[in-house]
């Protein structure tokens, strides 16, 4: 019990007539890395929203460090130690890369890493003065990861961090995360199987809002059913 950071039990959510999520369980231990995969529309982003407390589940419960965070204002959730990278890259386009990271640090209750270190971590050391709006797509994604790191989270939730990246960038991102593994818990939602393979961690497969399989990635990868609904397409 002691090292459980986030626990979702029997989570379900309805949007009007659509049962977007149903009977989902997820336990994230302290400093653990895990992945959620699934085809488009499976409910991955919705599940992340429930995990962060931005969406209240219609059934079941989510507890972060034993507290219910559902319905809290966004900034309070952030101050609990939950950082999040959105699916659509959302950096502040009119601020420089450095200022983006500064804004992120200022929001944290007790920032530790200096901006310089963050810049190096996300491989943007030579772009500090560039306006974030002028970065390449992949670099924006990295900057967002850097911003999430800046608030010194207990839990980092990443929604499709490698969307739109080249294969090299995808691998670099995976390595970035592996380097951070062990500092805090990470939940990564992904679409790109190469990325998940590189991370090689506990994986939850979603399909139409339900758990299809869960377990270590090499078990998942060899699963016939998962191949059929998901991997078979690649």
């Amino acid at each position: 019990m002691s090292d459980i950071l986030l626990q979702a039990e029997n989570v379900g959510i309805r949007f009007g007539g659509l049962q977007a999520l149903e009977a989902l369980n997820l336990t994230v231990r302290d400093k653990e890395l895990c992945c959620i995969i699934g085809p488009n529309g499976a409910g991955k982003s919705t599940f992340l929203n429930v995990l962060t407390g931005t969406l209240r589940p219609t059934s079941g419960s989510v507890r972060f460090l034993g507290h219910d965070s559902a319905g809290l204002p966004l900034h309070r959730i952030a101050r609990l130690g939950i950082a999040r990278k959105f699916q659509i890259p959302s950096v502040f386009p009119n601020l420089s890369v450095e200022d983006n990271l500064k804004v992120a640090r200022w929001g944290a209750p007790s920032p530790v890493r200096p901006v310089g270190e963050l810049l190096e971590l996300v491989a943007l050391g030579n772009r500090a003065a560039t306006l974030a709006g002028e970065l390449a797509h992949g670099q924006k994604q990295w900057l967002e990861i850097g911003m999430a790191l800046a608030i010194e989270p207990r839990l980092l939730l990443l929604d499709e961090p490698t969307a739109g990246m080249t294969p090299q960038e995808t691998l670099a991102t995976a390595q970035m995360l592996l380097r951070l593994k062990g500092e805090f818990s990470i939940v990564a939602v992904e679409h790109d199987i190469r990325f998940v393979r590189a991370l090689n961690c506990e994986t939850l497969v979603l399909h139409q809002g339900r758990r299809l399989r869960s377990g270590p990635f090499h078990d998942i990868e060899s699963d016939e059913m998962v191949r059929d609904v998901y991997l078979g397409r690649r």
Binding site: P73, L74, H75, I77, A83, S90, F92
Partner: peptide, 24 residues
């Protein structure tokens, strides 16, 4: 300074700023 930079961030993307812990 800090105040104005955060305001610019809020103007750019208020939800993002809130998700970083700022009370927009």
């Amino acid at each position: 300074g800090r105040w104005g930079t955060v305001l610019t961030a809020i103007q750019d993307n208020e939800i993002r700023a809130a998700a970083l812990g700022h009370n927009a």
